[in-house]
Design a protein around this nucleic acid. Structure first.
Lengths: 239, 239
DNA sequence: CGGACGCTTGATCTTCTTCAATGCAAGTGG
DNA sequence: CCACTTGCATTGAAGAAGATCAAGCGTCCG
């Protein structure tokens, strides 16, 4: 998914929802949804643009499911936690991604700000009415659900059957594919977040990264920045 | 999900598709879809009833995605395998469940017969045309996709953050909920299948079951039959 | 400068896997 | 009907991967 030009980003922050993901919407993982027309008018009944500080919750597990959201800037994670504190992060969402799209009356996953971020809220019942009358919107919703499903299935394979280093390799390539063109990846999330996404501990994440650096597959110029030195090796790791 | 009366099962095998899952379709995991009208007429363009012997493949990873299927009898598994042979089973499908519902041009998961089974095939392009003109069908498809998504997300939590015994406890309760009323569960799949579903090895599955039996939580009258002696203990395990 | 926070690294421990042997039930052929 | 094979399943012992526990390090920020 192409990142938006800075000017457009700025406009976005000003509550003008000009986006053009029509082409990419169907094919790519990032759960993008075309919620705006080309002329900039809004397709559905939106709520306000919301701002969240790091680690603030957009909604909790069990919260009434009234809205879903599109990331205007920043990064969001969705996750589930067991009552003994173990956490599984389901996905990370970056600029342009849509999350919080669930069918039940309550959110089954929590959503939290990984970094400072702004979100556009979409009222769920409004959008559902819209989908009922607008086939294209309904199609978009369906498409979005299927994309999420396929990605989650892929994630299950990862969690169930891959070792620590393989998990990290997969993660890095996934992150890379979402910041295309860039050879140096920015990791907006903590090691704990990565660990909870991959079903590992922070220590194992750290060790696996060090391992990859020792093997000259990656470089870690700073702690939150990764340079993929040997993509082929990474691809081979995930076989 | 209620099992069908024997007479109805027989009729079904004769290519008459009288089913009535309308009420359960929206709420339960088993991915049920209402593909037949109450009067017995078929809602969409179906293919034939197909029969598969144990371990036969309904379709492979990469096969053209032309149909999806409803289980008339028997059990089916969907899975992905890595090229070194590691396998992750995504789900088991029993009588009444719909599987093979994907949006891409090719199947990303394989589907195989766990036991001898018969399936009703539905042509994908026909159903898509139908969905485009029939809102109720489109709604069913969407609903189905969301159900699958939620179940897969739950499964991710299991794979990433639960220990062996917890995994088994979850699995047994899940199986139990799909054979409601029965205190003795039939496991139609092998230990290897269970292992690949839970991200474990057969040995660990076996040991965990023995463990649970030693703790008087379950009983194993035969190797493929489990009796839940202490449901409360199982629920507590999954906390 | 000092503290807080997140990250790394090492040592040890646990859990699960791997390897190998045995058991058990169903099916086959003498 | 009974040996014999065959295909799961169980069990034990050894090993490995990852978790846990415990320092230390770096960087950011007051």
């Amino acid at each position: 998914m192409p990142t938006l030009p800075a000017a457009l980003q700025a406009t976005l922050a000003e509550r003008s929802y000009v986006l053009d993901h029509a082409i990419t919407a169907r094919m790519s993982w990032p759960p993008s949804l075309l919620l705006e027309r080309r002329d900039g008018s809004c397709l559905g009944p939106t709520g306000p643009v919301l701002h969240f500080a790091v680690d603030n919750q957009v909604y909790r597990q069990g919260d009434k499911n009234r809205s879903f959201y599109k990331v205007a800037s920043g990064v969001v994670r969705t996750c589930r936690v067991l009552n003994d504190g173990r956490r599984q992060i389901d996905a990370f969402y970056i600029s342009g991604d849509v999350f919080g799209f669930e069918s039940g009356a309550e959110h089954r996953l929590a959503a939290e700000a990984v970094s400072e971020c702004s979100l556009i809220a979409y009222r769920r019942n409004g959008m559902e009415k819209l989908a009922a009358t607008n086939d294209q919107v309904a199609q978009q919703f369906f498409s979005h659900a299927m994309n999420c499903l396929e990605r989650t299935q892929e994630h299950s394979m990862l969690l169930g059957r891959r070792g620590a280093v393989e998990k990290l390799a997969t993660f890095l390539l996934e992150m890379s594919s979402r910041q295309p063109g860039k050879e140096v990846i920015d990791l907006p999330m903590t090691r704990q977040d990565i660990a909870d996404y991959l079903g590992l501990t922070i220590e194992t994440v750290s060790r696996s990264l060090s391992q990859l650096e020792r093997d000259a597959v990656i470089e870690l110029p700073t702690v939150r920045r990764v340079c993929l030195r040997n993509r082929a090796a990474l691809y081979q790791l995930i076989s």
